[in-house]
Deep mutational scan, measured.
Amino acid sequence: KLATQLLVDLAEGCHTHHFNSLLDIIEKVMARSLSPPPELEERDVAAYSASLEDVKTAVLGLLVILQTKLYTLPASHATRVYEMLVSHIQLHYKHSYTLPIASSIRLQAFDFLLLLRADSLHRLGLPNKDGVVRFSPYCVCDYMEPERGSEKKTSGPLSPPTGPPGPAPAGPAVRLGSVPYSLLFRVLLQCLKQESDWKVLKLVLGRLPESLRYKVLIFTSPCSVDQLCSALCSMLSGPKTLERLRGAPEGFSRTDLHLAVVPVLTALISYHNYLDKTKQREMVYCLEQGLIHRCASQCVVALSICSVEMPDIIIKALPVLVVKLTHISATASMAVPLLEFLSTLARLPHLYRNFAAEQYASVFAISLPYTNPSKFNQYIVCLAHHVIAMWFIRCRLPFRKDFVPFITKGLRSNVLLSFDDTPEKDSFRARSTSLNERPKSLRIARPPKQGLNNSPPVKEFKESSAAEAFRCRSISVSEHVVRSRIQTSLTSASLGSADENSVAQADDSLKN
């Protein structure tokens, strides 16, 4: 292990032709098999893994070397290190390495390699500790012929580059190093199909959405987006994914797998022009299946994007999809995704031109529960009313008269009656009930004795009459309010007539 670390330190600071010789020695160290011998017992696995620490030291050392060589000349050094790393990870899946030390190597290698970024000039870069990406002036992410390196360097940008540029090249004859992302992409596909350690798979799935944002990485080298989509959909639809995973937390289920895969599918929607129609349908189907899991909100957001990006695919699945959405409970976490999906859909009339009455009724059935102001915040309630109004205007004229009683009944049950079921009123009724029952229970537990009763009969009569009056008032709060309003209006009217009579009498006395 110490000798391997010494080789790594020497290679990191070497800029001459001896660098390749040092890498040859490190490569021989990495070539050791990580498969346990067949006769190895389970209690000896930890000791055997400790004997392979030099392999881990070599791989982690290459990660440090690549981070240094990416910004220094010659660029061919970075290319050689990158290829060695990718080849080593491929061996893991070729020979099915399952030892804990092998999983640790893959975890740290993917953690580093999935941080690679590219700008519009195809320059590769890595983020620093502050998250700012520094791009290399010597390494690009696409394949290029050595003699055409300078031509590639002087080509115009596709868009303004992001991030601070690296140091300027030493001279005009500098050759750019090619670090094609397709090599890593193929290893990522192998990981999605064969990885057995949940920690490694979770890391890859968590980092892929951010990497897919940099389309330069994908399009400048032959990366098959179709295969990526197929691998992701197979993970969700195939039963073998959960069987092969180990190291998963207790209670791990298909729902947890959906939570990890759906963000990658959402990021892949922007590549729909490069996906086969069959793959697009598979993607939409997987998102529909996710509606029954805890990732339902993410799936609804993804389907909203699909309705804009892939209208030809979503239009066929939309009638059944809208009916499925009615089975989702009206909760605060689902309110905004569902209502925004319906609001977006209302502005795309070509998608729902074939809707029948059942689909329009489903839209109103989804939106009406969110009009309850005692359960949802003001934004959700306003958005629900907006969706109902928009869809009522957009639905066909023959359907409107049939939906009017349905909508008014839903609004009455969710908006008007919600004020009668407020917690304050319920607590008031509970308190009044307890007050009504309390005197009775006290009389049963403690019967009054005439000799020891010091309270006069008049006081008892007053208290009983007050309790009886309170019971009468607490029967119905709404009736009490109505009666008080009527009494107030009658009182004001009587006072007004009394004032008029007094004024008339005063005038008569003055005349006399």
Rank of each mutant, 00 (worst) to 15 (best):
S237V: 08
L63E: 12
P222M: 04
L70G: 02
K199N: 09
T98C: 09
G156I: 11
P222H: 06
D226W: 02
L236R: 01
G247I: 05
D197G: 00
I218H: 07
M235W: 03
I89F: 01
L91R: 13
E243M: 05
S237P: 03
S76C: 11
Y181T: 05
T72A: 09
C141H: 02
P137Y: 04
L60E: 14
I101P: 03
Y97L: 02
K215M: 05
F185T: 03
D54Y: 05
D197F: 00
T220N: 06
A248P: 06
S230W: 04
T154Y: 12
H77W: 04
I65H: 01
G166R: 15
V225D: 00
L85V: 08
S196Y: 10
G125P: 01
R134P: 03
P161H: 13
A50W: 06
A50H: 12
L60G: 13
L228N: 00
T79Q: 14
E151A: 09
H92Q: 03
K152N: 09
K215D: 02
P249N: 14
D142W: 02
L63V: 07
L242D: 03
K56G: 07
S155H: 12
S51H: 09
V204P: 00
M144C: 09
G177A: 14
A75G: 08
Y97M: 02
H88T: 02
K202E: 08
L242K: 04
L188T: 10
R123V: 01
L99W: 02
S159N: 10
R207F: 02
P209W: 03
F219A: 10
K199Q: 15
M235G: 01
A118Y: 02
L85F: 01
L242H: 08
V81D: 00
D197Q: 05
Q194P: 00
K129D: 13
A58F: 00
E147Q: 09
L124A: 11
E210C: 06
T154A: 13
D54M: 01
K199L: 10
L73Q: 14
V86T: 10
K94H: 11
Y82D: 01
E210A: 08
K56I: 03
Y93T: 00
T98H: 09
E250L: 08
I101N: 01
R123Y: 05
R186Q: 11
F219L: 13
S155N: 12
E151Y: 11
L203N: 10
S159R: 09
Y143T: 07
I218Y: 12
E83F: 06
S136D: 01
V133Q: 04
M84Q: 04
S159A: 11
L124G: 02
S221E: 03
T72I: 09
V179S: 03
S87D: 13
P180W: 01
A118L: 02
I65Q: 01
T162H: 13
A173T: 11
E243Y: 08
D54L: 00
Y214G: 04
E151L: 13
R207T: 03
L116C: 03
S211G: 05
Y214S: 07
K153F: 13
K202V: 03
L62T: 05
G149R: 10
E195Y: 00
C223M: 02
A173P: 12
G166K: 12
P164F: 10
V204Q: 01
R134V: 09
L91N: 11
P222E: 10
V55M: 02
P180H: 04
T68W: 03
G206A: 11
D142S: 07
S230C: 07
Q190I: 07
V200R: 00
R207Q: 04
P239E: 15
E243P: 04
W198S: 01
G163A: 11
C223W: 02
W198R: 00
L116R: 02
H77Q: 07
V86F: 02
D197M: 02
L245R: 02
V86H: 01
Y97G: 01
S103F: 02
S104Q: 14
L192Y: 00
P165D: 04
L70Q: 01
K199C: 11
T241C: 12
F252S: 02
P74V: 01
L62C: 07
E53D: 08
K193S: 12
L52F: 12
E53C: 08
S49D: 12
R106I: 00
Q227Y: 05
G247W: 07
L232D: 01
A75L: 04
G149S: 13
K153N: 14
Q90K: 10
V179C: 14
P164T: 13
L201V: 05
S87T: 12
P137L: 04
Y138V: 06
L116N: 02
H88R: 00
H92S: 01
P209R: 07
S211W: 04
I101L: 07
F185M: 04
T162I: 14
P127W: 03
L60C: 13
T57F: 05
R244F: 03
L66G: 02
I65F: 02
P157T: 12
T162D: 13
S234M: 09
Y214T: 05
A58I: 00
A248N: 07
L66H: 01
